[in-house]
């Protein structure tokens, strides 16, 4: 029996929210990991199994080892993403509207993106100190490019007929931007933000490696270079991955709320 027109979106939504594929992927991943440890006979200092890592993850959260570092990293990510994406929106709109601005700025934007952030981070720490500011700047830098380019492409892709129609209705420049261009470009802009938010996580960790007392990047260094605690290293990586996944899903949720689901 074929689905009616009213039933089809519900079915698609149910498929999207079905947790079974995600759970299946997680189970396969954990089983393969544990099998590798058993077959290889690896010691926990070399390759800890998921059970050892899971136990260390729980212990490190309960005894307060991870929480203060995770809080610091999360703050850096949120601030860095907000600053970087905010600036990128403005610059992206400028690039979309002005070919002169695009020709003027593009070489520098591309050069900044092509330069390894790992090499720039120590310089930023040198100039701005090893506090929150330098981490926010590093996050903002790494977020900026994908969001700016997505914004530029998104706005340039707005259907010209929509723009002409708005002008025919005597829309002001501000109304054109707010009520036509940005809504129409939102799918592309939010696509850039999906990429940007995961890059922000990497930016925060790199910023912490350039200096600082707190943060999951600092905890990685401590676990690896001072404590030789490989299970803690994995637990920290798992925390970073979880933060990345949660932030990504937040952007996806915002996207679905603002522009609806895509496919």
């Amino acid at each position: 029996m074929s689905l009616t027109q009213a039933q089809a979106p519900k079915a698609a939504r149910a498929r999207r929210l079905d947790p079974a594929p995600v759970l299946l992927g997680a189970v396969i991943f954990v089983v393969a990991w544990q099998a590798l440890v058993w077959i290889g006979g690896y010691e926990p200092w070399l390759l800890p199994g998921p059970l050892v890592v899971g136990q260390r993850f729980v212990d490190a959260w309960l005894d307060g080892t991870i929480a203060p570092h995770a809080t610091a990293t999360l703050l850096e990510i949120v601030l860095g993403f907000t600053v970087g994406a905010g600036l990128a929106l403005l610059v992206g709109m400028l690039l979309a509207r002005s070919h002169f601005a695009e020709r003027l700025l593009s070489p520098y934007l591309v050069a900044a993106q092509a330069t390894p952030i790992l090499a720039i981070a120590p310089l930023i720490a040198l100039w701005f100190g090893t506090g929150l500011l330098s981490k926010v700047l590093i996050c903002a830098l790494i977020v900026f490019f994908p969001v700016a380019i997505a914004t530029m492409v998104g706005i340039r892709s707005v259907d010209k007929r929509l723009v002409e129609m708005a002008r025919a209705f005597r829309a002001t420049r501000s109304q054109l931007v707010r009520q036509v261009e940005i809504p129409a470009a939102l799918p592309a802009i939010l696509g850039g933000m999906r990429v940007g938010v995961t890059l922000a996580v990497i930016g925060a960790i790199i910023g912490e490696w350039a200096g600082g007392e707190r943060g999951l990047g600092v905890l990685i260094n401590l676990a690896r270079g001072s404590l030789f605690d490989t299970p803690l290293l994995f637990a920290t990586l798992a925390t970073i991955a979880l933060i990345g996944i949660v932030l990504y899903l937040v952007v996806v949720a915002v996207e679905r709320r603002m522009v609806g689901a895509r496919g």
Partner: peptide, 23 residues
Amino acid sequence: KEVTLSLVSRRPAGLFAAGLVAV
């Protein structure tokens, strides 16, 4: 001390696959 990290974060299911390959 110098350390490097590369995180691959796309969709959640993709991340699991990337993690599996990494392990």
